[in-house]
């Protein structure tokens, strides 16, 4: 079944194969509709194809095309209206978004709770968090509710890198602190984890991504390089 899904996808997108050690996301006639009050009923679909879950991929698209919705579908926060997205990869929470840290606790307390949730040693994860080079250690001792939203999102991204996920989802990457985003993507790439981030500007995506997908005209097209995606996006 998986091989059948992979074969037709090769006609329209890059030739990613489910070889040993590769993690893939298979989109099988995926359809997502818009909420009833929207003028356009279909957000995107039916889409079939393969996305890599072990590379840094940018999801490009204009406003209201469904970039964030695609991340929510991959992360399991929403269900498609038809079809499915299949992957064996373990997806992270959607970073740089609504947030998962408790505002009433400090960063380190949140780190300890998150470590326990994942069955990890709270003390050693807290130590790693404080030693992260791209985050000011003092920020971990402050209550999350006292931090600026951008700083809070940076802390959430930094904490997520310490948790064992296969593929990390980052929404609206342009809103994140660039140095933190760059460090996070570099760290995750070294660990051979995948990153899927959404962006509006292809030039921004080119700095970080290996490949890209473009959501346009209610369809998702996957490209092996960001440059090809940029050409398609600008048309």
């Amino acid at each position: 079944m998986l091989q059948k899904l992979l074969a037709p996808a090769a006609e329209s997108g890059p030739r990613w194969r489910a070889g040993a050690g590769r993690r893939l996301i298979v989109l099988d006639r995926l359809v997502k509709l818009t909420p009833p009050d929207q003028p356009r009923p279909l957000l995107f679909g039916p889409v079939s194809g393969v996305l890599p879950a072990d590379r840094v991929m940018a999801v490009l698209g204009r406003q209201e095309t469904g970039r964030s919705t695609l991340l929510r579908l991959l992360g399991g926060y929403q269900r498609p209206d038809a079809g499915q997205a299949i992957s064996r990869a373990k997806f992270s929470m959607i970073l740089n978004s609504s947030g998962y840290l408790h505002a009433g606790m400090t960063g380190l307390e949140n780190v300890a709770i998150m470590a326990r949730m994942h069955g990890m040693n709270a003390w050693s994860i807290s130590k790693l968090a404080v030693e992260l080079p791209f985050v000011d250690p003092a920020l971990w001792h402050m209550a999350i509710g006292d931090l600026e939203p951008r700083t809070r999102r940076s802390l959430e991204m930094a904490l997520a890198t310490l948790l064992p996920y296969d593929c990390y989802l980052i929404d609206d990457a342009e809103r994140a602190e660039t140095n933190v985003l760059a460090a996070v993507i570099r760290m995750l790439s070294q660990r051979q984890a995948g990153v899927i981030f959404t962006a509006y500007k292809p030039r921004f995506a080119r700095q970080f991504a290996d490949c890209a997908a473009v959501i346009a005209n209610q369809d998702i097209t996957v490209f092996e390089s960001v440059k090809e995606a940029e050409l398609f996006y600008d048309c």
Partner: peptide
């Protein structure tokens, strides 16, 4: 089941930390 136990335990600790802060 072990995953669920970890999560429930962490949620209890989280509630303790925030409720009695």
């Amino acid at each position: 089941v072990m995953d669920d136990i970890f999560i429930i335990r962490a949620l209890i600790l989280r509630t303790l930390k925030t409720r009695y802060r």
